[in-house]
């Protein structure tokens, strides 16, 4: 029972890990992208649609069935990021407004794209074998269940998080990106291309986040499409996770497991419906608690990037 819940929580955690890693990269550039839920919706819809048409076309090469939907998902997320960057960096629109609009837009677009084929989308379900159980181990004991039974997209999410952590904190590229998010005027004055870094981080971040939506459908749900609202809910949790893990992708690996466990606990335990809702609420409650604690006791290192949410105008001095 416990091993089962933990296994599922760990597997599910990749959704949040993709979402939050992407958002952390974006936020480190000073962009508070509240469009992540929308990005994840669009990503999952595009990924599933590509998968669907590949199946319809009779493609049965596993390699293509995995790679093409994945690339499409990443690209669709990146496009959403490009739109967000264009609006906030180039046109200097308010980041909160643009982000929320992107979420509403993404969720709607997702429903629109999927609706014509909702009834037939289940034909992609068998393709989930290409995504699951990378090492092909039987779940014979707790160790194989918890650590080795997952699909390769799961392991990829951890690799991405670790790479992001290393790049952000131990490379010149990461230093420059953080400088842009902390104090764009200073970064600009020393010749760092603020616009370029903001576009780049947002596009890549959104691409990574989009994978989270696709993962939730193809890997965790076994190819069964639920709804745009479901993915959007996961997206909001990913945004909360960024705060919960204090903008650290490596910490996010564990944070995402906590969030996933709280999210699925309700369905696994035989508790009342009201209790399930309470359990679903818990990730947000702990996020608020973390915010309170870091605001009161935290040092500067645990705070959000100083220029988060602020657009940069060079002329404004």
């Amino acid at each position: 029972m416990f091993v089962n819940i933990l296994t599922n929580a760990i597997r599910f955690s990749a959704t949040f890990l993709y979402g939050s890693t992407g958002e952390i990269i974006t936020e480190k550039s000073g962009h508070l992208n509240l469009g992540i839920p929308g990005v994840m919706c669009v990503g999952s819809a595009v990924g599933c649609l590509v998968e669907y048409y590949l199946v319809l076309a009779g493609v049965n090469v596993g390699f293509l069935l995995v790679l093409l939907p994945l690339l499409a998902t990443f690209a669709s997320g990146g496009l959403m990021g490009l739109l967000y960057s264009f609006l906030t960096v180039t046109l200097k629109s308010n980041q909160n407004v643009v982000g929320l609009a992107m979420t509403t837009f993404g969720s709607g677009l997702c429903g629109y794209m999927v609706s014509p084929i909702t009834g037939r989308l289940h034909i992609i379900a068998p393709m989930s074998v290409h995504f699951s159980n990378m090492f092909g181990v039987a779940e014979t004991n707790w160790f194989t269940s918890i650590f080795l039974s997952h699909g390769w997209l799961f392991y990829l999410s951890i690799v991405i998080a670790i790479v992001a952590q290393v790049v952000l904190n131990h490379t010149r590229l990461g230093l420059h990106l953080r400088a842009v998010g902390e104090n764009p005027a200073t970064a600009d004055a020393v010749g760092i291309n603020v616009t370029g870094y903001r576009y780049g981080a947002t596009v890549i971040g959104c691409g990574i986040s989009a994978l989270g939506g696709f993962f939730a459908v193809m890997e965790y749900m076994g190819g069964m499409w639920d709804s745009a609202a479901y993915i959007e809910g996961l997206g909001w949790l990913s945004v909360a996770l960024v705060i919960f893990t204090l903008w650290r992708p490596a910490l996010s690996i564990f944070g995402s497991i906590v969030f996933a466990a709280l999210y699925i606990l309700g369905a696994r335990l035989s508790v009342s419906f009201a209790m399930i809702e309470v359990l679903k609420m818990l990730p947000y409650v702990v996020t608020i608690v973390v915010l309170i604690i870091t605001s009161i006791f935290g040092s500067k290192k645990t705070q959000a990037p100083a220029a988060l949410g602020l657009n940069y105008f060079r002329e404004e001095r």
């Binding site: 230093l175 953080r178 400088a179 902390e182 104090n183 200073t186 970064a187 020393v190 500067k300 290192k301």
Partner: peptide, 8 residues
């Protein structure tokens, strides 16, 4: 006004 990043 110094052009420095506080957390660096």
């Amino acid at each position: 006004h110094f052009k420095l990043v506080d957390v660096f």
